[in-house]
Write a protein that binds this DNA or RNA. Structure first.
Length: 556
RNA sequence: UGCCGGAUGGUGUAAUGGUAGCACAACAGAUUCUGGAUCUGUUUGUCUAGGUUCGAAUCCUAGUCUGGCAACCA
């Protein structure tokens, strides 16, 4: 990092450090363990952990597990794994809101004692009716003036399981006329006769988010409670609870969540894709989930770089997924070893090359990093080249192989096309060439310029592997502005996955799971960690190389 | 039609009363044994209307557009 990041959140933190308001900066990431984390959460993880790191503070990982109906332990491990994978460490500070159920109960009792909360008898139907609507004030619950002692007694009996679900709730006593719905005597505790993933059946009352979150922050000594914009309207309640209890008061700061073009980020939609079988699972390499990106081959550092580049503001925005692709290309261009792989093979026969001869040519492993050395690439009479690299009738500006023309085989020889075979349907089945023995290694002694260089593999000394080519999951850039009744699934890209049998340099079948390569002229690929087996790797395309030839031919 | 936010190129973001800058994208050229990478250049922007000021993206007034909020979810 040459330039430390700066944004309005970091400005606040810096000001609070400078003024001496805080000695130690404490931030947090507080997921609910009820679903899969996506790159939007990644932005939040990076923001919170990075701010802590930059200030030599700490960042807590706290599971906001106050709703036993929706939360599961399996997500806890998955989320811990995602955070660690991104490269962050919460140290000693793994917490659970459920760790605070006891003190939280005490705080609720205290609030009732201070006449700032009461036990309410309204059922959820009546509750809605009494709450009113944004444009109309609500009205006070008949329970509002229940004597403190009576509320205290009822609350204790709620805890003891004497009542049914929904029979009673604890509500804050704030203001039924508030223009902010969240301040109209919000529910603090409800009865849920349900086992919790950590506390079992110890409790049958569970605190609500608004009550839990601010007090957990307070208990943990969080200095800056960073969350997304939709919690902005909750901030008055966050402040009210802490002020009413006169406890340590962290500052809640809201920022805009990440949105990406050509994908969806809401839990509901992601779930729909998974449950509908439209993707192979939460970790489908086309998914914007951290598990999907990881399996696709994205590196944690590229995702961190991306999160740093998108910035932090309060503006609702839609970030071009091209920026994410740029970040992974930039990194992999520096680090990924090169290899030759022919994705859609076409037989090429060097007519004047001896049948049984093998020439070991030198391939450069990474032109961006000479320290990565060279490797031997076997050259034989029969090769495979890319179908796209031959045209019987070349379009303008095509500088690959076509009848009568010369092209260079990468690291090999300059060859000249002398003919091609076709089947009954007129499809090209093989291309015939002659090679120029004086051009071994690719340079012409007479200095003649060869515009095109194509990649290839030996037909006999190469391996067949499965390669999965991915494209954007959706054909539509923006999926949040659909007309009513229009389903986002109508815009799924039918070509988002294409599986091919490719021919690759033989050594690649030893490639370890998760290893990444640049297939020259094609893109960056990663050995799929799920479907690969020993000696039988499956390659996921992480991202294609930029392709100005393809762009040139794309209809505007 | 209530409350809380937000409006800077195609996209994401800087500039906190003093030259509207950066990145991605797009386009053009140079270079290249990857139509990659690299290098150079170009196009495109302060929501509107008034006002304050020598000077406004920035301050004031009015308007326009836009996001969020009405789970005993988080």
């Amino acid at each position: 990092m040459d330039n430390p990041a700066s944004d309005f959140v970091r400005d606040i933190v810096a000001a609070d450090t400078a003024s001496g308001k805080h000695e130690l900066i404490v931030t947090h990431f507080t997921p609910e363990p009820n679903g899969c984390r996506h790159i939007g959460h990644g932005k939040s993880i990076c923001l919170n952990f990075s701010i802590a790191l930059e200030n030599k503070g700490r960042c807590h990982l706290r599971f906001d597990d106050t709703n036993p109906a929706t939360e599961e332990t399996e997500y806890v491990e998955a989320i811990k794994n995602d955070v660690r994978w991104l490269g962050f460490d919460w140290g000693e500070h793994l917490h659970y809101a459920s760790d605070y159920f006891e003190p939280l109960y005490g705080y609720a009792v205290e609030l009732i004692k201070r006449d700032k909360a009461y036990v309410c008898t309204l059922d959820s139907e009546q509750f809605k009716e009494y709450r009113g609507v944004p444009t109309r004030p609500g009205k006070e619950s008949p329970s509002r003036n229940r004597p403190i002692e009576e509320s205290l007694d009822l609350f204790e009996r709620m805890k003891n399981g004497e009542f049914d679900e929904g029979q009673y709730v604890v509500r804050a006593k704030i203001d039924m006329n508030s223009p902010n719905l969240h301040m109209r005597d919000p529910v603090l505790y409800r009865i849920r006769k349900m086992a919790h993933h950590r506390t079992g059946d110890k409790w049958c009352i569970y605190p609500m988010y608004d009550f839990t979150h601010c007090l957990s922050d307070s208990i943990e000594g969080i200095t800056h409670s960073i969350c997304t914009l939709e919690f902005e309207v909750h901030r008055p309640l966050y402040d009210w609870i802490l002020d009413s209890l006169e406890v340590y008061h962290p500052q809640q700061i809201e920022f805009a969540r990440l949105n990406l073009t050509y994908t969806v980020m809401s839990k509901r939609r992601l779930l729909e894709l998974v449950q509908g079988g439209l993707v192979s699972g939460w970790d489908d390499p086309r998914m914007p989930t951290l598990a999907g990106l990881r399996r696709r081959g994205y590196t944690p550092s590229a995702i961190r770089e991306f999160c740093a580049r998108v910035g932090v503001t309060k503006v609702n925005s839609l970030t071009d997924i091209a920026l994410l692709e740029f970040c992974i290309r930039e990194e992999l261009n520096r680090t990924a070893p090169r290899a030759m792989a022919v994705l859609e093979p076409l037989k090429l026969i060097i007519d004047n090359y001896p049948e049984d001869q093998v020439d070991e040519l030198d391939g450069i492993n990474n032109p961006e990093d000479p320290a990565m050395g060279t490797r031997k690439v076997p050259f034989t009479r029969e090769l495979f080249i890319e179908q796209d690299d031959f045209r019987a009738e070349p379009p303008p500006k095509f500088h690959r192989l076509s009848p009568g023309r010369e092209v260079r085989l990468r690291y090999g020889y300059i060859i000249k096309c002398v003919g091609h075979d076709t089947d009954e349907a007129g499809r090209v089945t093989a291309v015939h060439c002659t090679y120029d023995p004086a051009t071994r290694g690719g340079t012409a002694p007479d200095g003649r310029k060869i515009k095109g260089t194509i990649h290839w593999v030996s037909a006999v000394q190469s391996a067949e592997v499965e390669v999965r080519l991915y494209d954007r999951l959706f054909t539509r850039e923006k999926l949040d502005d659909l007309e009513a009744g229009d389903d986002f699934k109508n815009y799924l890209n039918p070509d988002s996955l294409k599986t091919v049998k490719a021919r690759v340099e033989a050594w690649l079948i030893q490639a370890g799971q998760g290893s990444r390569y640049q297939f020259e002229r094609k893109g960056y690929f990663c050995v799929d960690p799920v479907d690969s087996t020993d000696g039988k790797p499956v390659f996921n395309q992480i991202v294609p190389l930029r392709d100005s030839w393809a762009r040139l031919n794309k209809p505007q």
